[in-house]
Design a binder for these strands. Structure first.
Lengths: 208, 208
DNA sequence: ACCACTATCTACAATGCTGTAGATTACGGG
DNA sequence: CCCGTAATCTACAGCATTGTAGATAGTGGT
C-alpha cells in the first residue's frame, strides 16, 4: 500500500515532487504570501490555508516554521517594522520631500499602513509599539541638524515629524477612498502625488 | 414539563423574564454593544455571541433583527458614517480649531477612527466610500466662505481639509502609541492636545 | 552509498462561530 | 379578555479554521 505501488500517471495523484527550501527561504516566501493577502483582502484574509496555497505548500508547514498563526503574524509585523525603520533612517540628508515620498511608497504601495493599522486595531503585540521610539529619534535628528541654532522650539520639530507620520499613515489608508470619491478615475493618483508634495512643503517649513 | 412547573429558585434555570424591546430599541442596543466591542477589542472581537451577551439577549435575536452578521456590521458602519458626517457638517461657522477638536473627539474618543479603519481594511462595503464625498463638499464650503475672493487656489483649501482628515484619522489611531513611546505616562494626553492645537493653527493658515 | 536530520505531506481532531428550526412569551389591538 | 404578531429563546446543524500526529522524502555530511 505504499505510495509507489502504482506508476500510472492518471490514477493516484502521484504526489507531486516536493521542493525542500531552506528554513529562511521558506519563512520568507510564507511572509511574502501573507503580506500579499493582507494588502489585498485585509486582516481577516490571512488564513493559513490561503497562505499555504499561494506559496504552494501544505498549511501545517507554516505551523512548523512559525509555531502558530500568531507566530507568523508577529514575524510579519517585525519584518514590516524593520523595513519601515530602515527606510526612515536611511540617508537623513535627503530632502524631506524625498523622504516623505519614499516612506509613503513603503506605507502605501507595500501595504505596511494596512498591516500597521490592523496591528493597532487588534490590540497590538506590545512590541510593535516600542518601535515607534524611532519617531522620537528621527525628530531629534532633524532638529539637531537644521534648526538647533535657529532657536526653534524642539517641540515644533517633533510635532512636524509626528504630523508627517500620522498624515502619511492616514493618507495611505484613506487616500484611495478620498480619490475615488472625487469622481475622477485616472488622474486621481496625480492628485495624491500633488497632495503629498504639498504636504512635504508644508511640513518642511514653508511658513515664514 | 412546562417552564412554571417548579418554583424552586435553585434548580431549573427558571428562564429569566424576557424583556421585549421595540425593533428600533433592540437594534440600537445591539449596535451599541457591537461598537463597544469593536473599539475595545478590535475587528475580530465583534462576535454574535459576545454582542448578544453584552446586550443580555441570545445571539439568534441579532440574526432576527439584522438578517446576518454582515447585515449588523453594515448597519454599524452606516450609523457611524452618519454620525461622523453630522459632526463634520454641523455649524460650519465655528472656528477650524473647534471643528478639529470636535472631529478629533468623534474620531478618537468615540472610536470611530477604529471603526473606519477597520471598515477600510476589510474591503470597504463600496457604499462607505461614497460617504467621503462630504469631504469634498466640506472643502468647497470652507473655500467659498473665507478665501474665495482672496484669490487662493481652491486646491489649497481642498488639500487642507484633506490633511485635516488624514492627520486626525492617523492621530486617532497612532496617537496612543506615539505618546506611550515617548516614555511619559500621565501628561501624554496633554501632548496630544497641544499637538492637535498646533495642527489646527497650521491648517488654519498661520503661514503668511 | 548510507544515514541522520528535518522540511514537507496527508489525515484527522478540536474548537468556535454563523446561521436555522421550532417553540415560547410579551405586548398591543380588537 | 382573548388573540395574533413578532421578539425572543433553546437546541442543533454546518462550516471554516487552527492545530496535532505520524508518515514521507529531500539534502548534506560521513
Amino acid at each position: 500500500m505504499s505510495r509507489s505501488e502504482r506508476k500510472g500517471p492518471a490514477e493516484a495523484p502521484a504526489a507531486p515532487p516536493r521542493r525542500r527550501r531552506s528554513p529562511e527561504e521558506a519563512r520568507r516566501q510564507i511572509l511574502d504570501a501573507a503580506e500579499k493577502l493582507l494588502v489585498e483582502g485585509g486582516p481577516e484574509a490571512i488564513r493559513l490555508q490561503d497562505v499555504a496555497r499561494d506559496v504552494g505548500i501544505a498549511h501545517p508547514t507554516i505551523l512548523h516554521h512559525f509555531g502558530s498563526r500568531e507566530g507568523m503574524v508577529l514575524a510579519l509585523e517585525r519584518r514590516a517594522m524593520e523595513r519601515l525603520r530602515d527606510e526612515l533612517m536611511a540617508d537623513r540628508e535627503a530632502s524631506s520631500e524625498d523622504v516623505l515620498d519614499r516612506v509613503f511608497r513603503v506605507l502605501g504601495d507595500q501595504g505596511y499602513a494596512r498591516l500597521l493599522a490592523w496591528s493597532v486595531l487588534s490590540g497590538l503585540p506590545a512590541e510593535t509599539g516600542t518601535e515607534f521610539r524611532m519617531l522620537e529619534e528621527l525628530g531629534e535628528a532633524y532638529h539637531s541638524e537644521q534648526s538647533r541654532e535657529a532657536g526653534i522650539d524642539i517641540e515644533e520639530t517633533v510635532f512636524r515629524v509626528r504630523l508627517a507620520a500620522v498624515a502619511l499613515f492616514g493618507e495611505a489608508l484613506l487616500g484611495p477612498l478620498l480619490s475615488r470619491s472625487a469622481g475622477l478615475d485616472d488622474p486621481e493618483d496625480e492628485v495624491r502625488t500633488r497632495f503629498r508634495h504639498w504636504l512635504a512643503r508644508l511640513i518642511a517649513g514653508e511658513e515664514e
